[in-house]
Write a protein that binds this DNA or RNA. Structure first.
Lengths: 187, 187
DNA sequence: TGCTCCATGTAACACGTTACATGATTGC
DNA sequence: GCAATCATGTAACGTGTTACATGGAGCA
């Protein structure tokens, strides 16, 4: 389990409401660990019951139901314990590879539109990441420990997208060759 | 849902028992879609109930409980339908990035042993992939459509591992710098 | 008035993981 | 005879997804 720990990390960076957390999970942390608001509320309830976090009504709540969560000592300790524990490296789980394999055996599926769509999405995401990079991490050497680590996390995302783009282009090329090989009529 | 479709693909490539499928999911397809034998048996039961596959006792069963599954026309149709459907690109879900972020905010975790461990695992996997590549895909141009697609799937894995290795090395370097900056005593 | 956004939640279900159970076959 | 491997399954639980519900605040 690891969503709880992602939430703890996020709360340590900045005490927040469940709603705010859910939105932050669509950015920063969410690039590597997505979660819906329902999952987040469920985890917050559990962690409060476990004594890892506590909630209070913030000053700017007004008449809303807004709550703000803070990490307690027990939560911080749990996060440190978990972080030092070893865990298997991420496993790929790429639906598109299954589709490709299905196409390889069926030979009757046209995956090119989907590939083109993914290509555009990867390029968008890469552009986003690069914008963040030039804005937040200008000249490495002067950056704090915290910022240097954040930068490396972002770089991982950038590498991944660049990778995906390169591979997708090659794949499109292969499919184009297969669809219209030299000197043949339509397949 | 996509495990069912991964299983269908695997069965089209070669009709098999649940046990054989489970083992194949630790190789080839499993590089991009892992599943335990319990999941596979559950899916096989569902798909048989849905009329996508059928089972029979194979000639070499002897007194064992062995069953062999084959894909029916309905299953093949379902796989083609699913494969043409668009789906979001794979999302990263990397526990280690959460740990890094936790370290960035806690500053009291030593992630270097874990990074070194992952580095070794990535190198192993890359070596495995490259062995398969030189064995199965020698001189692209003469390969069948099926083999060319399989090769591209393998290449995706190779790129991913190379990427991970490069990033991990850089990360180790950053952590080493942070632990022992120029002109300082032990931290 | 009705729309969108803020904010929190319940319920049901699908998928993934772990532990356990059972029994036959193969090899030492 | 005993251990490992083949082969299939049940049960319980944890996590992730989807749909729905509720109600206040701000705005046209």
């Amino acid at each position: 389990m690891s969503l709880a720990h992602a939430v703890l990390t996020s709360l340590l960076e900045k005490p927040s409401s469940g709603y705010d957390l859910a939105r932050r999970f669509d950015k920063s942390i969410g690039y590597f660990w997505h979660a819906t608001h329902q999952q987040i509320y469920r985890e917050l309830a559990r962690m409060e019951a476990a004594g890892w976090i506590e909630s209070s009504i913030p000053a700017d709540a007004g008449k809303t139901r807004k709550k703000e969560y803070r990490v307690l000592a027990a939560g911080r300790k749990e996060l440190a314990r978990w972080a030092e524990q070893s865990s298997p490296p991420m496993d790929l789980r790429d639906e598109f590879m299954v589709k490709l394999r299905a196409d390889a055996v069926l030979s009757e599926v046209n995956l090119r539109p989907e590939l083109a769509r993914h290509l555009a999405l990867h390029r968008d995401k890469l552009a986003q990441y690069q914008t963040i990079e030039t804005r937040d991490f200008p000249a490495d050497r002067t950056l704090s420990r915290h910022a240097q680590i954040q930068h490396m996390i972002l770089k991982k995302g950038i590498l991944y997208e660049q990778n995906s783009i390169a591979w997708t282009l090659e794949m499109l090329d292969v499919l184009a060759q297969l669809a219209a090989p030299k000197g043949s009529s339509t397949p």
